[in-house]
Design a protein around this nucleic acid. Sequence first.
DNA 1: AAACACAGTTTCAGTATGTGGAACTATCAA
DNA 2: TTGATAGTTCCACATACTGAAACTGTGTTT
Lengths: 279, 279
Amino acid sequence: MQRENAHSVRQTNGRSGAKADGTVAKALAVLDAVAAAGRPVRFVDLLNDAPFPKATLYRLLQTLLSQGMVQYDAESQRYSLGLRLIRLAHAAWSQSSLGDAARPVLDALSAQTKRTVHLAQLDNAQVLYLDKRNAARPVAMFSDAGRIGPAYCTGVGKAMLAHLPERERADAIAKQSFHEYTPHTLSDPDALRANLEDVARTGVAYDREEHELGIICVAAPVLSRNGVVLGGISFTSSVHRESLADLAALAPLLRNAAAEIAERAESIFAPNVTAGAAE
Amino acid sequence: MQRENAHSVRQTNGRSGAKADGTVAKALAVLDAVAAAGRPVRFVDLLNDAPFPKATLYRLLQTLLSQGMVQYDAESQRYSLGLRLIRLAHAAWSQSSLGDAARPVLDALSAQTKRTVHLAQLDNAQVLYLDKRNAARPVAMFSDAGRIGPAYCTGVGKAMLAHLPERERADAIAKQSFHEYTPHTLSDPDALRANLEDVARTGVAYDREEHELGIICVAAPVLSRNGVVLGGISFTSSVHRESLADLAALAPLLRNAAAEIAERAESIFAPNVTAGAAE
DNA sequence: AAACACAGTTTCAGTATGTGGAACTATCAA
DNA sequence: TTGATAGTTCCACATACTGAAACTGTGTTT
């Protein structure tokens, strides 16, 4: 314990290149692990994949448990994600400035075109869906909000990538996995880059059955006034219903909607809320 | 200069604004605060309501920020909930054993009856909605999953309360706020208790415009094999559409559905997954 | 029934980690 | 310039986190 010169480095005490961010980070990592399991998990199962010793993992779980972030079923001896998370997420979603701004616009788009509409954001070089309007039936929404998808082979993904600043775009492209979902998937960085140039030029991105056979999309980025990528929106359809060219006819509608969303989003953020300090 | 400790308020209480010790708990409290704000908040605003000194709050926010649990907009200098939360919640929701088990059942109920269907769970003596099927249009679901409601004046709430073990029920009743939403609201513990006795006897709870004028519900608890309250489901309708008596005719359907959900939920939890030890 | 194995929980000394008062910087207003 | 308020950094200090190891509980094997 050298306190005199303690000011030195934040020694992360060697060991594998961990992040060593703090207890909170560890607890969240445990949460992720529980989430990743995809179903209730037992202590050992978590222990196997966890970089923590038994006692530490145990304590973290207890903390999360008493905090309502995970649940524990005594009978099956399994942990699952807790209700508090759902509450929080409800808040996160309903006040997400983009989601908030987009909601009525998506409603209108969906009603007007009878197509499936998606709203997404970029999260760590992946597509994170924020909202959806289904063409046909009232499908449970939550099953799609929060869902993660690939950026390099979806309409929204490409629309957003194309409008990123160069540096960020390069980073993001480097993070893509280029799994060949279908024969049409752009399966290497160069093919993607070429495609993105078109997208950047036209302001419209297409998914030509690149992610799923038979499924096509038109997408447009949602850009802030100063060109920052806020998100993306798209129409999805199927080749059985119409050709890509037909779907492309909806692009102007999409671009207008994107502009409207951007404007609404900025007016939510921007106003000098400084007034009502209380609360 | 001494931290006013000495209190040893070591409560493992956890819920409802409790502040058990531990960094994780504090960080989560900050998250809650951001969520509670309902919109992007500035540092000071958080500081005012927070029980933490400036530097501590600052550090906690930085941690949450670097963990993706909150976002920071440099321009407006405001914090909001982060995307990681949405991802986690998606997982929480889609693997919630109850929600999972209930989904197809709710679909069927909704298709069959054309009524609005709710699935809820008790969370800290309040109703937390997990899923919903709207009678008419495909409404964005997330806006309702995660929503919190009062237990003492909703169908699902009373259905669940009534089937709680005595001790827990007493606790839960003590936590109700008894706000008089409408002239029909059961606005004191005794009235509620009396009503719950009926509910317990019949296995069906009604909301007779107790929460909102014109809105009525029939609800049934989802009970595990050994009688533990897992959740509740309900049909909601309006007095303009039908009388409570008419709606009540759907009760048997509801009870069957509840039983089916319970069975499915238990078979999701139960299976001896012990097999794949390796991995 | 005793022996074993493995899951889960508790303990405890040691110190890494988080704490928070205070000093500092940045911004705006008078 | 001075003053007020917001946000950030510093750092001595001790809380509260760590993790090996011991322990308990349950199920399986002999």
